Computed example of a mutant assay.
Amino acid sequence: MIRLVLLLLVLVAIAFGASWIADRPGEMVLVWQGWRVETTIPVALAALAAFSAVLLLAWKALSLLFASPRLFVAFSRRRRREKGWSAISRGLTAIGAGDAAVARKARDDAARYLPHEPLTHLLAAQSAQFDGKPEEAAQSFRIMLESPDTRLLALRGLYMEARKSGDLGAARTCAEEAAQQAPALAWAADAVIEARCADSDFPGARAVLERQMAAKGIDKRAHRRRRAILLAAEAMALELTDPPVARERALEAVRLAPTLVPAATVAGRLLGNAGELKKAAKIVAAAYEVTPHPDLAEVYTYLRPGDAAQDRLKRVRQLILKAPTHPESAIALAHAAIDAGEFAEARAMLQPFALEPTQRICLLMAELEASEHADIGKAREWAARAVRAPRDPAWIADGV
């Protein structure tokens, strides 16, 4: 709207000026080299405007003529870049779709039009990976290391190739460099933490985790749990060689993640060995209430070394109140009852699972038959059923 108003004002000014000059025509006489030209002011101004326009057009034409080589080169470069980017896009799409032939052709086109573009090397690396040529892929990734924009991408590519080839040393070097350059990078931090844990360097692993947290690469909840996992792992490694330090690490792990099974397990063992039975029982029971785990049941059962079987049975009866309907509670109580000679109670716990028993149920039934009735035949029958019975849930680490 403002531009329209300004345009109208300019047109009004031009019209007013033309009208003013037309009302005052005047005369102009030009004498030069025997030539005499007589005209009015409006005509002279019109001739001057036309002459200026012709000069301007001639200047533009000459400028375009002299600049044509440069413009042609720029146009050619732009066309090459457009073709190169089109080839890169086509190649990455083909790799995602699984079309190896189109990916190879696009890779060659990109290398011809954009030989120094980092993404061209990325396309070449992914194409080589797709074709099963790790050496060529690694070479492309090494070229990408020279560009700051693609350095982290290249380090990840080299890390993956090293892992595939089994070169854990090279993989760790790439991950360490990436984590040093970008502490918030999840894959690099995870890889370095895994490598340092494999070397039992748990303080070093925690240092990487703290740098990741400082760089806001992980949220507070995940940071607390992962720190607890590392502390629990260190406590388990030091449990026999340095119990005081192991206890300190285990208690900090429990403080950060009270329901973490490994942390509660090692803390319960260490506190039980130190005679702090109430504190140990509280930690293990709290974790068992959320996650009824066989390791927690075992630690709680043997919390105080040297207890009689009846004392262990009483302790297990208290523990299963935290999860009375869970199968692990029935298994733990049955095991303790068999040890204490309370065969009726053990049979009552196992009977609901006898129709579709798991391997552990079968083995407990075999132990029960052998202990209560000395019936070796039934014990062998239950042991044979254990071979064909479904396996119990496998408690494994899930990486988090």
Rank of each mutant, 00 (worst) to 15 (best):
H116Y: 05
L153G: 13
P69L: 10
T150H: 14
L271R: 11
I88C: 04
L55C: 11
L168H: 12
A100Y: 02
A13S: 09
P148K: 05
V73S: 07
R221G: 05
E117M: 05
G399P: 01
L6K: 11
I41W: 12
E146H: 10
H373C: 00
R104C: 01
A58G: 12
G217S: 07
E381P: 00
A383L: 10
T241H: 09
D311R: 10
A215E: 07
K282M: 06
G306P: 09
G399R: 14
S19T: 05
S89C: 02
A47C: 11
P243W: 12
S19W: 14
C197H: 03
R226T: 08
T173F: 06
P324M: 07
D108C: 03
R78L: 09
P25I: 05
E210M: 03
S140V: 01
V29N: 07
L251F: 09
A44T: 09
V387W: 09
A184D: 15
A195G: 11
A205E: 05
K314R: 14
D167C: 03
W32L: 12
D109K: 01
I143D: 07
D108R: 07
W32V: 06
E136C: 00
A323L: 07
E367D: 13
A182I: 02
I2P: 00
G157K: 06
P243L: 07
I331H: 12
P243T: 07
S127H: 06
K278A: 12
E136W: 02
